[in-house]
Design a protein around this nucleic acid. Structure first.
Lengths: 236, 236
DNA sequence: CGCTGCCAGATCGTACATTGTTTGTAGAAA
DNA sequence: TTTCTACAAACAATGTACGATCTGGCAGCG
C-alpha cells in the first residue's frame, strides 16, 4: 500500500507550486478544493468575511486567494458585488475535455518519440496496478490513471500545454470522483491503455496519438453522460 | 478612419470582463499592459509599495491585482519574497503558438460549417481593409488581423477555447508589435487569408482547418525568428 | 576569512474607514 | 387590502493604515 500511495496524484514537475501564502494548506488550496469537490455549490456567493471567519484568518488573505482563483477561472467577480463560484456544469466539462482531445494527442506523439525503456516499464507497472485494482477502489483508479498519463506528459517541453492539461485533469477528476464507471467504459479503458503501451513500444506515434484522442473523447463523453443522468434524476 | 477604429481589437463576446476594480483602467489592466508590452522587464521584481505609490493607491489593490495576474500566469510568486514578472521568452511564445496550432483549426472547422453570408461579407470587408493598409501601419494591421480571426471564433460554443485563444493572441500581439513583417510573411498572410475566405465560401471545413494550422504555425515561427534575431543582436 | 547578530526593506496579516448595494419597512396611492 | 415608492438601516466590497514577520545584506567580531 505504501507502494500505491506513491501514486497520490501530483502535478507534473515544473508546474508552478504558485507559492502558497503561508503554511501547509494555503487558503487558496482550501477554497479551490471546496469548489472543485463541489462542497461549494455552483454560483454560490463567496462572502469574504464569512470565509475569513471560517478559516480563522482576516479578510485580506481571503481576498487575495479569491483573486488568484479568479485568475484561474474558478470564481467570477462582479464589481462591488463580490465573488461567486463558477459553475462546473456540462458546458464547462465539455469545453475542457474537447480542448484535451486537441492537445493530448500532440503531447502523446512527442512522448512516443522520446520514451525510454524506464518510461515504458513505469507505464506497464502502473497499468499492472490499475488492472490489479480493477476499479474496486474508484478513487485509487483515478489516481493511478492520472499517474499513467502524467508519466507521458511530465517531461514534455511545452510546459504551458502540460500545465493546461493538468489543470483540466484536476477538474475532470473531481467531477467524476463521485461517478462509477460503466462496464463498457471499464473495458474501453483497459483495452486502450494496453493498446497505447503497445504503440509506445513499437514507436507508432501517429497511432498512439489517434488512440489518445479517442481515449480522451470517450472519457469526456462518459463523464458528460453521468452528469446528464444525475441532472435528469434531480429534475425527475 | 472612424470605420477603422471600429476594429480596435477587443475580446470575443462572452469573454469575462473579469470585473474591473473601480474606474476605467483598473490597476490589474495597467500592470498587465506594462508586463505584456515589455515596459516591465522579464523577471523584474514587483514591489507592492512601489507599485502602490506609482499608481496613487494603497497596497491592498496592488496585492489583489498581482494575485489575479498570478492566476493568469503573468507573474510568479515566491512566498515571503514577492512577485516577479514572468519572462515572455522564446519558450513561452513557442508554447502558446503551438497550442494555437492545435486549437485554432478546430475553431475554424466549426466556423466554416456555421458561417453566414454576413460573416463572409465581414471577413471580406476586413480583408479589404488589410489589403488597403498593406502593412503600411503595422499596428493597424495587427488590429485588423485580430479582428479577422475574431469574426471566426467569437461565436464558437466552446467559450473556454475561445478565451484561451484570445489570451494567447494578446500576448503574441504584444510581443510582435515591435517587429516588422518580412516580405515573405506579408505575402503568405495575404495569400492564406484569401485562400481561407475561398474555403469558407466553398464550405471546405477540413481544408480551412489545415490552412489555419499552417497560418498559425507560420505566424509563430515568424515571431520566434524575430525574437532570435533581436536576442542575437543584443548578445552580439 | 568566516561566522554571528543586527538592521533595513518588503511581505504578510489585522484592524478599521469608506463606499456601494441590498433589503426591509413604513407610508401613500389605487 | 394591495401595491408601489421612498427611505433607512444592515450588509458587504473596496480602500487605507499599521503592526508583525520574514529575508537578505552588512558590520563587527572571533
Amino acid at each position: 500500500m505504501a507502494e500505491i500511495s506513491a501514486f497520490k496524484a501530483k502535478p507534473p514537475v515544473g508546474t508552478d507550486p504558485l507559492g502558497a501564502s503561508s503554511e501547509g494548506a494555503s487558503l487558496y488550496e482550501l477554497i479551490r478544493e471546496d469548489i472543485i469537490e463541489g462542497r461549494l455549490a455552483a454560483n454560490e456567493r463567496l462572502v469574504v468575511a464569512d470565509l475569513a471567519r471560517q478559516h480563522g484568518t482576516s479578510t485580506n488573505p481571503v481576498r487575495e486567494a479569491l483573486q488568484l482563483l479568479r485568475g484561474e477561472g474558478f470564481v467570477t467577480f462582479v464589481p462591488n458585488r463580490g465573488a461567486r463560484v463558477r459553475p462546473i456544469d456540462q458546458d464547462f466539462v465539455r469545453d475542457i475535455y474537447e480542448i484535451g482531445v486537441l492537445i493530448e494527442p500532440a503531447l502523446t506523439r512527442w512522448f512516443v518519440n522520446m520514451a525510454t525503456a524506464e518510461d515504458i516499464a513505469e507505464l506497464e507497472r502502473i497499468q499492472g496496478l490499475i488492472e490489479e485494482n480493477n476499479f474496486a477502489d474508484t478513487l485509487l483508479h483515478s489516481e493511478l490513471d492520472t499517474a499513467f498519463h502524467t508519466v507521458m506528459y511530465q517531461r514534455h517541453y511545452n510546459r504551458h500545454a502540460a500545465e493546461l492539461w493538468w489543470k483540466h485533469r484536476e477538474v475532470l477528476r473531481a467531477v467524476s470522483r463521485r461517478f462509477n464507471f460503466t462496464l463498457a467504459r471499464r473495458a474501453a479503458i483497459m483495452r486502450e491503455h494496453r493498446e497505447l503501451i503497445a504503440h509506445v513500444k513499437a514507436g507508432k506515434a501517429d497511432e498512439a496519438a489517434e488512440l489518445i484522442a479517442r481515449h480522451v473523447e470517450g472519457s469526456g463523453r462518459h463523464i458528460l453522460e453521468h452528469m446528464r443522468a444525475r441532472n435528469a434524476a434531480r429534475a425527475g
